[in-house]
């Protein structure tokens, strides 16, 4: 799908500030000098095309009392598929990437407590037979997840 200028402007606005008011699509329509129907159609289309994953809240796991971490895993090449299935089966694993390194599988894990996290990691180690390093952040400098689309 080719994004036109209106799509890009719309995506730039709604990534950081989707209106928190009774009729959000109408507010967006006013901001962009178009109709509510047009905005709703475009958002539906962008969802169908898989460009928009969802519209909703992004929460700060720490402020909700959860623990989060980045984990580095060393997986033998012939066991990648199996490890992927094991790791991805946990709902607290939100991101998982293969990377070019001896530690080749990197995933983020969110757990309700430190104990729960250690338990999950031990279970993953036992199931996969692989080494997993737990690297919880000790200092936080930045989290910003919106991307400006160039026109």
């Amino acid at each position: 799908m080719i994004l036109d200028e209106l799509d890009r402007r719309l995506l730039n606005i709604v990534q950081s500030s989707f209106p928190v008011s009774a009729e959000p699509y109408k507010v967006l329509a006013e901001q962009m000098a178009t109709t509510e129907e047009e905005i709703m159609n475009r958002i539906n289309k962008l969802k169908e095309e898989g460009i928009i994953r969802r519209v909703g809240g992004v929460f700060d796991s720490r402020k909700l009392g959860y623990k989060s971490s980045l984990c580095a895993m060393k997986v033998p090449v012939d066991k990648l598929k199996e490890a992927e299935e094991i790791i991805n089966s946990y709902p607290g694993v939100t991101h998982n990437y293969l990377r070019e390194h001896d530690y080749n599988m990197w995933f983020t894990l969110i757990s309700p407590s430190e104990e729960a996290m250690e338990e999950t990691l031990d279970e993953m180690r036992a199931k996969s037979g692989c080494e997993i390093r737990n690297l919880p952040a000790t200092r936080f400098f930045k989290i910003k997840v919106d991307f400006k689309l160039k026109n």
């Binding site: 994004l3 995506l11 709604v14 990534q15 950081s16 500030s17 989707f18 928190v20 095309e49 898989g50 460009i51 928009i52 994953r53 969802r54 519209v55 909703g56 809240g57 992004v58 929460f59 700060d60 402020k63 909700l64 989290i143 997840v145 919106d146 991307f147 689309l149």
Partner: peptide, 22 residues
């Protein structure tokens, strides 16, 4: 929702994109 955003328990409210698609 406004309160969650103000106190930071919600970092943002908006659209999540599939970045590789854009």
């Amino acid at each position: 929702i406004t309160k969650y955003l103000e106190e930071g328990s919600m970092r943002r409210f908006g659209v999540a994109l599939r970045h590789h698609k854009v």
